[in-house]
Design a protein around this nucleic acid. Structure first.
Length: 809
RNA sequence: GCCGGCAUGGUGAAAUGGCAUACACGGUAGACUCAAAAUCUACUGCCUGCGAAGGCGUGUGGGUUCAAGUCCCACUGCCGGCACCA
């Protein structure tokens, strides 16, 4: 079998699609809402390394699905663009002096060429890059909306500081205590930052998850990330001080067991509470903690450390004085930055109390446990039970005790019910050049003043050096003529904000710009937004499970609140594609030398082989190793399809067996394509082709539907075969074949005869044979008789069209 | 440590609680060929057996069921995420 001429075929059809704008999506009002679909890929960051074989996996999946939808009469929006701001281009600029825009645009061109070589049916008229002024004008506009709603604020806060990049990092850019990009150990530094108040949307981000069709594990990860907990805040008075110490606890029922308090080293009350005798030790500890990175703080925390402040707090229920300590196991960023130590019922508190010889009092007992409860418990338990050593609350089961003590605290005015989140506000500024400038100015007289919307975009100026200033400010701070400006409000002198936005900003809303990419009056026309939104299917890697998808949902909800979009959740259905591993079953990486380059595969086997192979490897959502040997099998399948098309295609009727196989194939492929189970769908096409390729002449009634079904998977070959059938129009909008249910059913069924669950015989009967008949025929089977022997038949199970199980004893 | 996912032939994998291993790779044998490649055909889970046939088999151990890869319980291993969240 000769190799089919994929090079010429693929080139030819890619050109046809491009010049004819085959896949342009128009907002045709005559197509009803239920016949419109928005299918979105996570757009790539155009790295210098070029396209990875992982990219085409999700892109092929959505492409097949979109082509399938079009053939089923849907109006499909399927765009592609580039997440073009980002650190690698800037780091390259620092090394070489090349403007990041130059690098980025070259990479974008390369990516576009590589993506087009795979024959995806994108509407390229809608392409966007987040780094173009046309685009980031609207990223800045959205920032202004956030600012006006009070959701963007400045804060002087300790941040992760990378001494090598000389810039601040968000928590999520720190991996194992190291800078995600350059792997330098991260330290802490206080710096002025812009922060977005995502916590204000915590409950809505949580609630919205109940209304979207996403994988449960991903929803769970988002829920855990938001980390909502209910409990109580309690004020502890501090004898000798007018302030009180507020703590948050999920277990107010253990208040009687609180024998000490711990503040985070960064807690504002630490200086006031430190007595002269303890001052030296406390200050040393605070300094030590500040110097440490998060890695060290968590690592060293295997043994609890801490120092006594010298002060005492009053336990509001026992009226006993309890010592106030500081320790780095208490985080300033969660709750109030202070805790009550209940060593008997919290592992961490237990370790701390044991390390420093603090008293341990049991206040919860397991159901069925009998006292006495007046001695120090042997082990710590956080489990529910009933209250002991808790005065008036003794005997109450834990949930009841929590309620009653919370009420009691409220009555006394020393506490109340409280909700807390693990989610923190989003550190939104970067001390970088290659990002969207934050469109505000700092005016001595008016404070922080946002730019007028009509003055957007605020363009990134040219700089001579991309190197960070080292003071924590971005390279923009080195351009006085840009920094010094006038206040939009009072007209007096003002300074521009020199921080830029993080890469997440542009990717937070790109799916909206695809709707109306050239609009310069609005970020999207409301009519067009309403036409397509929400996104019906969003496919991308699971590594974005939390951050990108949470940030994006947050922005979308804000845009919904300002009336800019019509839905409050952006992505109805989410599918995460699995990772493609190297042939050695390891993550692909340069250092392992197991990287597969898509260009090589396309050159040697063609884009269609690449596409079909990636879909044939296994289920879309699991990780799977690349195998060039496996690719060969798929390539043979396409060659066989080509070879079959070279045989005479005739008008003769096909045999009933093949007609039935065709209808079964249409049914299975329709179902599997619709549910994105491409691997089993392809296998069904293989079964069909294996059969018809045996024929000397090919009935057109079999071949035509096969070509149509193959087309979404191998579109270049599909179009070519369609043309060979005498069609002059593209098959992109031809009708997907329809199956006839009656032709998918077998007239005869093989019935398995089991004796005690073991297969002993088989018989062939016509479909739908009555249970009673099956029972008789099974009992008549000589082999079954042999196995039954003289045993008693206890029971006979009949499953129509499938099996008879004779149970004997 | 916690959370989540996965575990099936030599390999990638398939299987509404009802014939385990479809499809593909690889392998073996044969056809075609001067020869090779390509292609085509047959076989290909393991064990016993000349064969007929039988037994075993979906990470391990239990359980539910007439029937378990699939459901339940306990464990082991691998992969991913999180990191003292009070």
């Amino acid at each position: 079998m000769a190799k089919y001429p994929f090079e010429s075929i693929e080139k030819k059809w890619q050109q046809r699609w491009e010049t004819e704008k085959t896949f342009r999506a128009l907002e045709d009002p005559s197509i009803p809402k239920e016949k419109r679909r928005y299918v979105l890929d996570m757009f790539p960051y155009p790295s210098g390394a070029g396209l990875h074989v992982g990219h085409p996996e999700g892109y092929t999946a959505t492409d097949i699905y979109c082509r399938f939808l079009r053939m089923n009469g849907y109006n499909v929006l399927h765009p592609m663009g580039f997440d073009a701001f980002g650190l690698p281009a800037e780091n390259y600029a620092i090394q070489t002096g090349t403007h990041p825009e130059v690098t980025t645009m070259a990479n974008v061109d390369r990516f576009r060429t590589q993506i087009k070589a795979l024959g995806f049916s994108y509407d390229w008229d809608r392409e966007v890059s987040t780094c173009t002024p046309d685009y980031y004008k609207w990223t800045q506009w959205i920032f202004l909306q956030l600012f006006k709603k009070g959701l963007a604020y400045e804060s002087e806060m300790p941040i992760n500081w990378c001494p090598s990049c000389k810039t601040g990092l968000a928590n999520e850019e720190v991996k194992d205590g190291e800078c995600e990009r350059c792997h330098t150990k991260v330290t802490r530094k206080r710096i002025r930052q812009w922060v977005l108040k995502i916590t204000a949307y915590a409950d809505r981000l949580l609630e919205g998850l109940d209304r979207v069709d996403w994988p449960e594990p991903i929803k769970l990860m988002q829920r855990n990330w938001i980390g909502r907990s209910e409990g109580a805040s309690v004020h502890f008075s501090l004898p000798g001080h007018k302030e009180t110490l507020e703590v948050y606890t999920t277990r107010p029922d253990t208040l009687f067991g609180a024998t000490y308090m711990v503040l985070s080293p960064e807690h504002p009350l630490v200086p006031a509470l430190t007595t002269n005798e303890c001052k030296a030790a406390v200050e040393a500890y605070v300094q030590e903690a500040a110097r440490k990175s998060d890695l060290e703080r968590t690592d060293l925390a295997k043994d609890k450390t801490g120092v006594f402040t010298g002060s005492y707090a009053l336990n509001p229920v026992t009226r006993k004085e309890i010592p106030v300590w500081i320790s780095d196991y208490v985080l300033i960023s969660y709750g109030t930055g202070a805790i009550m130590g209940v060593p008997a019922h919290d592992e961490r508190d237990w370790d701390f109390a044991k390390a420093f010889g603090l008293p341990i009092i049991q206040v919860v007992a397991a159901v069925g446990e009998t006292g006495p409860f007046d001695r120090e418990p042997k082990e710590c338990t956080a489990a529910d039970g009933f209250a002991v050593n808790s005065g008036q609350f003794d005997g109450l089961p834990t949930p009841e005790a929590i309620k009653r003590i919370t009420v009691w605290l409220e009555e006394k005015g020393i506490g109340k019910k409280a909700v807390n989140y693990k989610l923190r506000d989003w550190l939104f500024s970067r001390q970088r050049y290659w990002g969207e400038p934050i469109p505000v100015v700092h005016c001595k007289k008016c404070g922080i003043v946002p730019l007028d919307e009509k003055d957007l975009p605020l363009l990134l100026p040219q700089v001579t050096s991309y190197t960070p200033t080292g003071t924590g400010e971005s390279p923009l701070a080195n351009i006085p003529e840009w920094v010094n400006t006038t206040c939009p409000k009072c007209g007096g002198p003002a300074k521009r904000e020199t921080n830029t936005m993080p890469q997440w900003a542009g990717s937070c809303w790109y799916y909206l710009r695809f709707l109306d990419p050239n609009n310069n009056k609005a970020f999207v026309d409301p009519g067009i937004e309403n036409y397509w939104m929400p996104v019906d299917l969003y496919v991308g890697g699971a590594e974005h499970a939390v951050l990108h998808l949470l940030y994006s949902r947050f922005w979308h909800k804000v845009l919904y609140d300002v009336g800019a979009v019509s839905t409050d959740e952006p992505f109805l259905r989410l599918v995460n594609q699995g990772m493609i591993l190297g042939e050695d079953n390891q993550k692909m990486s340069k250092s392992r030398g197991n990287v597969i380059n898509p260009d090589d595969i396309i050159n040697n086997f063609g884009a269609d082989s690449m596409r079909v192979y990636e879909m044939f490897m296994g289920p879309l959502d699991v990780s799977k190793p690349w195998s060039t040997a496996g690719l060969v099998g798929v390539s043979r399948f396409l060659e066989r399809a080509w070879a079959t098309s070279e045989k005479p295609i005739v008008q003769e009727a096909a045999s009933i067996e093949l007609v039935k196989l065709l209808h079964k194939t249409i049914k299975k492929l329709t179902h599997d394509t619709n549910t994105l189970n491409f691997n089993t769908g392809i296998s069904q096409m293989m079964i069909f082709l294996n059969e018809i390729s045996k024929l000397e002449t090919i009935p057109r009634s079999l071949w035509e539907p096969f070509v149509l079904m193959l087309a979404p998977y191998a579109p270049h070959l599909g179009e070519e075969l369609w043309e060979k059938l005498g069609n002059s129009e593209s098959l992109a909008y031809a009708s997907w074949p329809i199956w006839e249910e009656a032709l998918t059913l077998d007239e005869e069924k093989e019935i398995v005869i089991q004796v005690n669950g073991k297969i002993r015989d088989r018989l062939t009967v016509s479909a739908g044979t009555e249970d009673a008949v099956l029972r008789e025929r099974a009992l008549d089977s000589p082999k079954a008789k042999e196995w039954i022997g003289d045993k008693d038949v206890v029971k006979i199970i009949v499953v129509r069209d499938k099996l008879v199980n004779i149970v004997i004893k």
